[in-house]
Nucleic acid binder design. Structure first.
Lengths: 191, 191
DNA sequence: GTCTATAACGCGATAGAC
DNA sequence: GTCTATCGCGTTATAGAC
């Protein structure tokens, strides 16, 4: 099996265009043109424009889900879990920048069933994140602060990391991996 | 002069729909239907769909610009300035939730000149914010941390506040005004 | 697997009656 | 100021030749 077959190539190219202009602003002609073929030829590989979007969004969403499901039950401190989650966001931001941007900007353009699947994964993720944070506060590993505001602030920063990352060079990524957990968790860790 | 003339009503309704579905996913027929009229009738009040978007985005952008231009030169501590900026974001989030969402999601669909105006305001805002923060670090009012990561984290939280606010009741807004500055600036303020 | 041709439809915007 | 009618164009997707 090839590493990138034609369908994968289409989806990668679509993600790049969706990120730049938004799902609705990218036509099948735009996408085909970027691949050097005609729009009609795309339909030999994909079922519809909607299918492309759902493959992009759900693939990343599942990656987040898998990771937090693995971290969540571990017997380590809440701080360690939060650090692992932050590292994972950085990894995905680096490896799947375009996909992540699509997830953030265009998830609401998913059709009925795909949309429900996405929203369920998103809610479950946020719920596990909340429990980890609250657990840390209960055990006095973390300062007692308004948890909802803290959750929002951390998650929104992690979600939009791709906006910042794409402006920076790869050297600064090392700085990011080192300093972002501090920035997000400092003033929160009991000392 | 009436408080809300027809044009204002159109723009407010458009902002609500753009927020929910995105600029490109809302047709002039959708907008007209929401107002109980036909699409053609809209054009007695507005020049184009693009004009609606630019009025929404540039109005909010100008409000942010005006505020930071007023705060920036004042002779108070950097912390006071940052607190004032955070309060302003909360105010605008509450008062112009839909407009703010449009600015965040659809600014890239502005046409040539409007887009340039927006980007200039956005850059100027970020630059003044950066200078305030760096000034606070130089004067040891704030901890010396990687400034770009701090700037990104604070601004992205403030920009996306509307996502969080719209889920919460108005009572919790008082909590937000009290706790958000702490959450964003704690671990940053020297003590 | 890509092509040309085209179906079926929705889009933004305008003209002109009332 | 709102309406009906319509123009010209772009959209997703399909049929069938090669």
């Amino acid at each position: 099996m090839k590493v990138t077959d034609r369908k994968t190539e289409i989806i990668l190219t679509a993600a790049k265009l969706f990120r730049k202009k938004g799902y609705n602003a990218v036509s099948m002609r735009d996408l085909a043109s970027e691949l050097g073929i005609k729009a009609a030829s795309l339909y030999n590989h994909i079922k519809s424009k909607q299918e492309i979007l759902s493959e992009i969004v759900l693939q990343v969403a599942e990656r987040f889900t898998t990771h937090i499901d693995e971290i969540y039950p571990q017997e380590v401190s809440s701080i360690k879990k939060l650090e692992a989650i932050i590292q994972n966001h950085i990894e995905i931001t680096i490896q799947q920048t375009d996909f992540l941007a699509c997830l953030n900007n265009d998830w609401m353009h998913l059709a009925e069933e795909n949309l429900q699947d996405y929203l369920k994964m998103r809610n479950d993720y946020e719920e596990k994140f909340r429990k980890i944070l609250l657990d840390g506060m209960v055990k006095n590993e973390l300062e007692n602060r308004n948890p909802e505001i803290v959750i929002f602030s951390i998650l929104t920063t992690l979600r939009t990391l791709y906006l910042w990352y794409s402006k920076k060079s790869s050297i600064e990524v090392e700085v990011l991996k080192k300093d972002l957990p501090k920035t997000l968790l400092n003033g929160l860790i009991q000392n």
